[in-house]
Design a binder for these strands. Structure first.
Length: 113
DNA sequence: GGTCTGACCAGGG
DNA sequence: ACCCTGGCCAGAC
């Protein structure tokens, strides 16, 4: 069995589904939370091949950069984010420092899962 | 079966 | 700040 099994995938799906509108998460973050910190790349593949009804536009890379392979390319990704009220600069990046979502409530220090 | 690529990341030069 | 490398894995040829 592979080290990145369907369990990992399902966790990624769960986390992505829980990202609130207007916030973002990173690939590495999702990978680490799902139990495979080295599998950030896998998360990208999962995003590419996974269910289209999940808000993949809320997933960006560590620098806030958008995804090449998003349907419609950078433009498509940018548009999808703008609809949600997320500002995207001319370099196709978002302010990840302000918008990054973390499933742990920092104030209450509790886990929603 | 080997080899290459990829919606990535961290570290070193 | 840039470019390169190693890491690890799944899919496509």
């Amino acid at each position: 069995m592979s080290r990145v099994d369907s369990e990992f995938k399902n966790r990624v799906y769960d986390y992505v589904a829980q990202i609130p509108q207007g916030r973002v998460m990173t690939y590495g973050q999702l990978a680490a939370l799902s139990g495979a910190a080295w599998a950030a790349w896998e998360v990208g593949q999962i995003a590419h091949t996974g269910p289209a009804d999940l808000p993949w536009q809320r997933v960006v890379n560590k620098s806030g950069g958008l995804a090449r392979g998003y349907p419609g390319g950078f433009e498509g990704h940018k548009k999808a984010l703008l609809v949600e009220g997320v500002e995207v600069d001319t370099e196709y990046k978002v302010q990840v420092g302000d918008l990054l979502w973390w499933p742990i409530d920092k104030d209450q220090n509790s886990l929603p899962l």
